[in-house]
């Protein structure tokens, strides 16, 4: 097996694992945040504007880590800097 093939195998495997763990963890966090915000809105419907705006900001913050994982996966597959390193 050539070294380029090894790089390809490791890159694709890592990209899949990165996206899986990154999206799952971000989804758990966002789900908890959204559930809590819905509960708060149900208890205090008058504050729905403030709660939902704060929730969107918080969701964006939480989503950032998932986006990082996604970008790393894309870099590994489409723009891998190590393609020509061992040939």
């Amino acid at each position: 097996m050539s070294e380029t093939a090894l790089v390809a195998i490791v890159s694709i495997f890592t990209a899949g694992i990165t996206t899986a763990i990154g999206s799952a963890a971000a989804a758990i966090g966002e789900g908890r945040a959204a559930a809590q915000a819905l509960q708060s809105i149900a208890q205090q419907p008058d504050e729905a504007n403030t709660i939902s705006r704060t929730m969107f900001i918080g969701l964006a913050m939480v989503e950032t880590s998932g986006i990082y994982c996604f970008v790393i996966g894309l870099i590994l597959i489409f723009a891998n800097p190590f393609w020509g390193a061992f040939s």
Binding site: A60, T64, I67, V71, L74
Partner: peptide
């Protein structure tokens, strides 16, 4: 994070 978030979402 501000740059990567917008870029990652629109590109994805």
């Amino acid at each position: 994070a501000l740059a990567m978030r917008l870029f990652g979402n629109v590109m994805s």
